[in-house]
């Protein structure tokens, strides 16, 4: 096991006050440590020196909860493909490297502290239609809805999203289209999601807009940054589903006009 000497440039910020980069030396970091374990070591040293440790979100540390959210050298979750920060290991760095560590930057992800941001916008988007309105206990027998393997697999591809927000952080426009398209796409692909398809599509896109995310310009940085490799073809599908839903909305097709209930 080798030890690495690193120079860190870490974003420090308290709530809504302006932030700044702090230069922190991180000598003798074991290359077998994960990136977050490196942060733990740095924090232990800061605490020992009476300094404020760096706040960062993290929880499962096995790449599934989506809590960890650092932009490392300009790339959300760092340089390794299909890997969350918690699964990134220090052997991917060289001794002497300078590492920039910043929060996921977007107006819709306000900084709570240091590298910790508020991703509540994602929850609110989900509340605007990311569900099938079925009551507990009212479900039909599981096998009564046959779903082809290809359809189930496609839905699973979309459902692999861990809601980390790397797509927003990597997008040049801080757009949330990859996240929203994966979430809308999972349910719009499955037969269970069809009754609420139009309502869901309109509702979630409107909420996404209301949260102040940017707009997709088809540059696909999101797909490159996504730790679960969600495909931008879900964005294609969302564009299509939204156009169809909007046209139906404009001409008053479907039950929406009759019920006087919009999709938001």
């Amino acid at each position: 096991m080798a030890l690495l000497n690193l120079h860190l440039k870490v974003w420090r910020q308290n709530g809504s006050q302006p932030g700044h980069f702090q230069d922190i030396e991180a000598p003798e970091i074991p290359d077998h440590a994960s990136f977050l374990e490196m942060m733990d070591i740095v924090n232990e040293r800061l605490i020992a020196n009476g300094q404020d440790p760096i706040a960062f979100d993290h929880d499962c540390r096995e790449g599934i909860c989506g809590a960890c959210s650092m932009t490392i050298n300009g790339m959300p979750h760092g340089p390794e493909r299909a890997t969350t920060t918690c699964q990134l290991h220090m052997r991917k760095f060289r001794t002497g490297d300078t590492i920039w560590i910043e929060p996921f930057r977007a107006r819709s992800f306000p900084v709570v502290k240091d590298l910790m941001v508020d991703r509540g916008a994602f929850d609110r988007i989900m509340q605007a239609g990311g569900f099938v309105s079925i009551r507990t206990g009212s479900a039909p027998e599981g096998n009564s809805i046959p779903i082809g393997k290809d359809v189930a697999d496609a839905a699973m591809d979309a459902a692999a999203c861990i809601g980390c927000g790397a797509c927003v952080a990597s997008c040049k426009n801080a757009s949330a289209m990859l996240f929203v398209s994966a979430k809308v796409g999972q349910l719009n692909t499955l037969p269970q999601g069809q009754p609420e398809r139009q309502r869901r599509t309109l509702g979630m896109v409107r909420q996404m807009d209301a949260e102040g995310f940017g707009n997709c310009t088809n540059q696909y940085e999101c797909e490159a940054a996504c730790p679960k490799e969600i495909s931008v073809r879900w964005i294609t599908k969302l564009n299509r589903d939204y156009a169809v839903a909007a046209v139906k909305d404009i001409v008053g097709a479907g039950r929406q006009q009759a019920g006087g209930e919009g999709g938001d």
Binding site: K9, W11, N73, G74, M75, W100, E102, K172, Q219, E221
Partner: peptide, 10 residues
């Protein structure tokens, strides 16, 4: 803006 900007595929 990011202090360190990187572009992967755009």
């Amino acid at each position: 803006r990011y202090g360190c900007e990187a572009t992967q595929v755009a």
